[in-house]
């Protein structure tokens, strides 16, 4: 800043990108995270059957990203003109690159759902034999590409999680957002929320045994993911604390006011504290209960929502 002359008045009023964007960022994170975790488990364990976990993850990833689009388009001031973004591409814009990635990713998640729910869809279509024939024909072709589609799905799921971070980390006016850690944090917190969502849907809708091999695997990996998430948040805070004058002023967001409460109660308390307490502090009986399983899963997702809200709101509140 020039000491000689500057202005502090701005034409935007407060937070221009509000809660719909935070919710979209959460949904994109869940979508990508669920698919990454389920497919990596499949690759690692060399599974060939359709597991309840993969079923749940495919459904979750498609439904969340589709809902995400509703929030994303709904936040536009001219929502009916959203198609303009599909015909005018700007390769220097993270948003444009993201739209391209999304337009590949959504069909991928849809195809994943077709693979995993082929039987169910066939049953629904059974009454109309002609449609059933078409569906069988399409699936016959698609099935040949399944290994490729699965790999592409993982790649694009990572791209989706990461792009949501880059989308706001390019906003140079806001020190909390303009950091290299943000995309990494969004990938990791996406994994955390995605794991929780996929495992809850798998047990609730697809009757996965809460102590099955896949669920045990998820239960093992969710803690290292949470640890990395905490570490990245700590790194973000330290980088601001030791940064320049403007970065230092943003650390107030962690210390007092509404956003500090959101951070400490929402992100730290509900997101990290509650699952840790339920699983480790109250004894094995509580830790193995269904109630603890669903409660800690929902707490994880809520925590990630709070993290996105905190980043979006506190981020845009403290500008240079």
């Amino acid at each position: 800043m020039n000491g000689a002359i500057n202005f502090t008045y701005g034409f935007s009023h407060g937070v221009e990108w509000g809660w719909p964007i935070a919710v979209y960022l959460l949904l994109a994170g869940i979508s990508g995270g669920a698919l990454i975790v389920a497919l990596l488990v499949r690759f690692y364990k060399k599974q060939h059957e359709d597991t309840p976990l993969l079923k749940a993850a495919s459904l979750v990833s498609f439904v969340t990203i589709a809902f995400g689009m509703v929030f994303l388009v709904g936040d536009l001031e001219k929502p009916l003109y959203f198609w303009k973004i599909l015909i005018n591409y700007n390769f220097t814009s993270v948003m444009s690159i993201g739209v391209m990635a999304i337009s590949i990713y959504i069909p991928l998640t849809l195809v994943m759902c077709l693979y995993l729910f082929e039987k169910e869809i066939s049953m629904v279509l059974a009454k109309k034999s002609q449609l059933l024939d078409y569906f069988a024909l399409v699936m016959g072709i698609l099935r040949k590409f399944r290994p490729l589609i699965e790999v592409l799905s993982v790649v694009f799921a990572v791209v989706i999680c990461a792009y949501t971070g880059f989308l706001i980390s390019v906003l140079v006016r806001f020190p909390i957002l303009n950091t290299a850690i943000l995309p990494a944090l969004f990938v990791v917190s996406g994994l955390s929320a995605g794991t929780a969502s996929a495992s809850m849907v798998a047990t609730w809708f697809f009757k996965e045994d809460a102590h099955s091999s896949d669920m045990k695997t998820l239960h093992v990996i969710e803690w290292p993911i949470m640890a990395v998430e905490m570490m990245l948040i700590a790194m973000l805070f330290v980088s601001l604390l030791v940064g320049n004058e403007f970065q230092q002023t943003t650390t107030v967001a962690f210390q007092s006011g509404v956003y500090a409460n959101l951070f400490w109660f929402g992100v730290m308390g509900v997101g990290f504290g509650l699952p840790l307490v339920l699983n480790f502090a109250l004894g094995k009986h509580v830790a193995h209960s269904k109630m603890a399983f669903y409660l800690s899963g929902m707490a994880s997702v809520t925590g990630v929502l709070c993290l996105r809200m905190f980043i979006i709101y506190a981020g845009q509140t403290f500008g240079v």
């Binding site: 221009e16 990108w17 536009l76 001031e77 003109y81 959203f82 303009k84 948003m95 006016r173």
Partner: peptide
């Protein structure tokens, strides 16, 4: 313009 407000938040 679709009024996504990206330019508004990107402007330093």
């Amino acid at each position: 313009c679709i009024a996504c407000k990206y330019c508004i938040v990107a402007c330093p």
